[in-house]
């Protein structure tokens, strides 16, 4: 494919002083889906399945990513685009180490953090408590958490319409929840941060702030992956873009070129 030569050359030239953070080597991801209960769910049947170690009969395999390879470097922000079901989110989860590749391998520097829309924290607890717990779960010390907590709540903007930080998270709108989650995850310096549509839920003001935050993370030598259907937000934050279609890498290169091709195709 003609598309391939240019980015490959690009990467090789750039490799001269740059440190790779994510190396994806010919990765295939196949995962299983439960089609839901189709009978045979009685305790006796369940016991039988446990004893015989067989899977429930209602599982289907999906070959979601088919032989994708690329190398990401420190300080890069990479957009992932493609139509629904093209394997973008699956690829991110493989990079995060949450889905094992069936073939090939993913190598990462440090532990990538995946930030998705449905990465729920504890819905019964107040926003403040979620901030503390989230930070502790990212490995911060209690002193650090105390220092950063007000900043995080400030950044998320959940207190703009009254004191929401002390209310349980289940009372938040979906946008507020997503903003708080993004604020928590981005409070720490990550070597690799994977963002899956998480910025799409915020309002315009928040989107601008979070794009700024992504740039800061990138500048502090991290690598950021951004999955989004909003081409404009990818153009704003990423200088490199990978286009996936039906699990196959279609194009990899500078954002403008790839986005133009993607939009031209539609």
């Amino acid at each position: 494919m003609a598309d391939q030569t240019q980015p490959a050359g690009n990467a090789a030239v750039a490799d001269a002083g740059r440190v790779p953070t994510v190396v994806v080597d010919d990765v295939h991801v196949i995962y299983k889906i439960h089609k839901g209960a189709t009978g045979g769910t009685s305790p006796v049947a369940a016991l039988k399945r446990i004893v015989s170690r067989t899977n429930a009969p209602n599982i289907r395999e999906v070959h979601a990513v088919k032989g994708v390879s690329f190398t990401a470097y420190q300080g890069e922000a990479i957009g992932l685009i493609g139509s629904n079901g093209s394997g973008k989110s699956t690829l991110l989860r493989a990079v995060a180490g949450l889905l094992p590749p069936a073939r090939g391998a993913v190598y990462t520097l440090g532990q990538p953090s995946l930030l998705g829309v449905n990465a729920a924290l504890l819905n019964d607890l107040s926003g403040e408590r979620n901030v503390v717990l989230g930070c502790l779960a990212m490995g911060m010390s209690p002193e650090e958490v105390k220092r950063l907590a007000p900043e995080i709540i400030e950044f998320s903007g959940i207190n703009e319409r009254g004191d929401f930080a002390s209310l349980p998270m289940r009372t938040y709108s979906s946008g507020m929840g997503a903003r708080l989650r993004f604020a928590i995850s981005s409070a720490k310096k990550h070597d690799v941060l994977l963002i899956d549509e998480a910025l799409a839920t915020g309002d315009r003001k928040f989107r601008a702030r979070s794009e700024q935050r992504v740039r800061e993370l990138r500048d502090s030598a991290g690598t950021v992956f951004l999955v989004s259907h909003s081409i404009s937000s990818i153009r704003d934050t990423c200088e490199r873009t990978i286009w996936l279609e039906s699990g196959v890498l279609r194009m990899d290169g500078p954002t403008d070129e790839v986005c133009d091709a993607y939009e031209g195709q539609k």
């Binding site: 391939q4 030569t5 490959a8 050359g9 490799d15 790779p20 190396v23 994708v68 690329f70 190398t71």
Partner: peptide
């Protein structure tokens, strides 16, 4: 498909070697 076998056309190392050289570990 060019993207499956090719690693780093410049230096001739495979992606696995590149990862190893920079101390990258298998995800998860």
């Amino acid at each position: 498909m060019a993207n499956t076998a090719v690693a780093d056309p410049n230096s001739g190392v495979t992606r696995a070697q590149l990862a190893q050289r920079h101390g990258l570990r298998i995800a998860g």
